[in-house]
Design a protein around this nucleic acid. Structure first.
Length: 257
DNA sequence: ATGGCTACCATCGGTAGA
């Protein structure tokens, strides 16, 4: 089973790119972030025509997450992150697909830091970590994937010294990620490629992609049951070079059946 | 320290992204 995550940065602006990528790589499950569309403007027909069924949580202008599954309906288990009824952001959706629990997340950016947006990020991270712990106690195969907006280590940024005061790389963000991992999750891409420079995002500014000035911020966290089944992982870098493309590239893993 | 680019919403600039 191939599972992918892709921060599309506007699903309607990006539809040709998304459909081309789906056709060329045919993942079984796709988690999307930054739909940037209200619920009713999700391009469902185009997704269905591409062979996928979908659940999504939209929001006007910002955020928005979706889970697509090829030839099967994702069975929704959660919409919105538990722990704060006041939180209106569409940043988490979860489904069961062929026996696997799939959580799709768009963790807040948090800049500028310090400040209220950074506080929101850390609070959201705490709530997410609590939910992740709950998922682990069920002893099920679980994957938590999406845009974590965290640069885990210096290996994951083209010039780490430039990012020390940024919400993506501040010690609070990195230690929150480490604390999450320490529950027993595996960072799938890093496990298979412990020493390689791997990026999933490149700035639109200053020809970031051309200079390979990137970050690794889109991650796959696997529960122990799935860690054992991990056989491959990668980034579809070429998609970042297409016309009218997102600033993120799709990331994927492959699990043994 | 700033700005560079792209999207959305609603104009022709503001907000957000990372």
């Amino acid at each position: 089973m191939k599972i992918a995550t892709y921060n599309v940065n506007g699903i309607n602006a990006r539809l040709p790119v998304l459909l081309r990528w789906l056709k060329e790589t045919a993942p079984d499950v796709v988690c999307l972030q930054e739909l940037k569309t209200p619920q009713e403007k999700f391009p469902l027909q185009a997704i269905v025509d591409a062979g996928y069924q979908a659940i999504w949580h939209g929001q006007k202008s910002w955020n928005g997450v979706a889970i697509l599954a090829r030839d099967t309906q994702p069975e929704e288990t959660k919409r919105g992150l538990p722990g704060d009824p006041e939180d209106e952001h569409s940043r988490y959706i979860e489904a069961k697909i062929k026996g696997i629990r799939v959580g799709c997340l768009y963790l807040p950016n948090g800049n500028p830091a310090p400040g209220p947006k950074f506080d929101y990020k850390l609070n959201w991270f705490d709530r997410f970590t609590a939910h992740a712990a709950d998922l682990l106690t069920a002893n099920e195969p679980v994957v938590l994937t999406g845009d974590y907006n965290v640069i885990p280590t210096e290996l994951d940024a083209y010039k780490p010294e430039r990012w020390v005061n940024d919400a993506l790389f501040r010690p609070e963000s990195r230690s929150a990620f480490e604390k999450l991992l320490s529950q027993g999750w595996t960072d799938a891409v890093r496990k298979l490629y412990p020493d390689e420079t791997i990026y999933t995002y490149w700035d639109y500014f200053r020809n970031g992609f051309g200079r390979n000035a990137g970050l690794r911020i889109d991650h796959f966290l696997l529960s122990p049951q799935l860690d054992k089944k991990l056989v491959a992982a990668g980034v579809d870098r070429n998609v970042r070079g297409w016309e009218k493309t997102s600033d993120h590239a799709p990331v994927w893993i492959e699990l043994a059946d």
